[in-house]
Design a protein around this nucleic acid. Sequence first.
DNA 1: TTGTAAGCGTTATCAC
DNA 2: GTGATAACGCTTACAA
Lengths: 358, 358
Amino acid sequence: MLDAHGPPSLKSLAAALGLSAATVSRVLSGQAERYRISRATRDRILAQAASSGLVVNHLARSLRLQRTLSIGLVIPDISNPFFAMLAREVERSARRHGYSVLIADSEEDPAVEAQALALMQQRHVDGLILAPVGTPAAVASLSALGARPCVLIDRLLPELALPAITSDHRAGAALAVAHLIERGHTRIACVQGSPGTFANDERVAGWRGALSEARLPAGPELVVGGGYSIDAGRRAARALLQRAERPTAVVALGNLLALGVLQAVHEARLAVPADLSLIGFDDQPWASVVDPPLTLIEQPIEQLGREALALLLERIGGDAAPAARRTLPVRLIERASVRDLRSGDRPLPPARSPQGTP
Amino acid sequence: MLDAHGPPSLKSLAAALGLSAATVSRVLSGQAERYRISRATRDRILAQAASSGLVVNHLARSLRLQRTLSIGLVIPDISNPFFAMLAREVERSARRHGYSVLIADSEEDPAVEAQALALMQQRHVDGLILAPVGTPAAVASLSALGARPCVLIDRLLPELALPAITSDHRAGAALAVAHLIERGHTRIACVQGSPGTFANDERVAGWRGALSEARLPAGPELVVGGGYSIDAGRRAARALLQRAERPTAVVALGNLLALGVLQAVHEARLAVPADLSLIGFDDQPWASVVDPPLTLIEQPIEQLGREALALLLERIGGDAAPAARRTLPVRLIERASVRDLRSGDRPLPPARSPQGTP
DNA sequence: TTGTAAGCGTTATCAC
DNA sequence: GTGATAACGCTTACAA
């Protein structure tokens, strides 16, 4: 029987067995045969470890080994479904590779982000997955991170040569605009997220590019909003709806933004798509049962998470390949939030398509 | 200038300054005056620390101090909006108190949960917030956790005397049923989550209790489903809709379940509330713009998170008060997913109420 | 006012 | 085959 005080440690187990800590360590870290530990000793240790409920102290181990088998995940808003799904995927993949995840919410605030990054450094995470806030201040604090492996996700920092996994934001927005133009829309606004943020600016660029190419208006008066919250979306849409020359369609550059737009439209006793067509971003469980089912641009969230982790582990493994940047393709899921303005060329989309595009 | 190799540590800084590590440590941990360090020395250290970008090694500190200033958060599904919001709140509160959060997703699986708990123990988190899977196996693995402070959230384990913060699941379900009965419903089904789980079983009990009290049927044939996923909700609702004697109303005992029910109803080319009334759980941004806006039971998620953390910190602080159990009140938000079956006694609820109860 | 030294629980190196 | 020892980077008696 071991001493009941404190949790059983490698050391206490060694004492109880009359062995040295070294031997116990060798067995427990699976190096038994490499060190030619006798079968008898090995079994004795293993048995005692199991029966005493030994827990090796990971702190001590990390201190000695100079690696913690943990990674940091810093995202702007855990409660945003997009990041929540990302977090889940990252955590699962990490766990499957033996890593644990220290999580921090930067609240889309450079100061908080800087603080989070400092913390991660203090805690000696082996690597970092970061959806950066993206302002110059944030970039500066990032450069202070030292050589710790870091991969960016969803957003990238062109100023910094860091590996990044993002979806093709620009193509996504362009796809949305093209879909609207095809259906006869000519006055297409966009509700943006946080300007200065890579994902947002890329999407705005995609929106503008597609419109310009079609020789349609894409002036700044058609870009409204700021911030990725549902409230920001609602406020932006309200403003849009009060305009004398109301757009016939709007692209919401974030999942919560589309919800905000819907709320504003409902508030105004108007309807989508009768009074305003809407295309959102990110497929979510609710997107197909919302009123009306939402046409949107889908990002491969799970893939983003998995690839970010895979890339990070490569770099942690010392594979210092040149900072890869991978852009994942997006697709448009057609539901029922876009009105076809052409005079009967085509039927309206089906009223319901709860499963997404079949 | 410090040696450029490796990150500046307390030790290297001491060397660079020709001081002992002890002195530097004392200054850096704010004990300068307690040890009567000279102003000059103190300033020299502080200046050098700032300019060299010193990061104290938290591992070493934790090992020495026997506390990590970190807590573990183990939840069944980060991507479920309920838990995502909970996670955000816990992380924020923790951060504000100087703690960081190690997160793990138990995937609603006892084995994974056990693994996660073991991990948290290895990593020496100072305490644990857990939404337990709740099966006997899981309970057993929990008891093996040792004396580490732990507070349960959302679900509690009656077998274990652990402090817990939950919302009043039972009253919530009863509230929903009462609301339906008041509007003339007599055949009221429920779509449950994971049986055996505290929150679920309490809700089912609340549903049954309210029905029995009103002398309405509450047999097992009216309880369908299993699992909290959207798919589980859809499948359960499908089965319900095919019944000869279809219920007029259903209470979905989880936020994603309500979405699944909506999807199934839409699939069947039926409508809520015309063909089936629906009450869900958890207010979410999408709940007010779904078709129709969802009447539901709202839980005080932020409060759950904050109080769980507060309670945990108390216990970490050594306050071994008897395992408190706090039950937070819920409320019903009336929107438009319930049909009034009484012959014109009352008008239907407003078609839209995007903001919840005004 | 500051330094010395022991120790937190591991693991790698060298010795036997 | 196994043990002693040093080191990982920090904090805190105890000395000076």
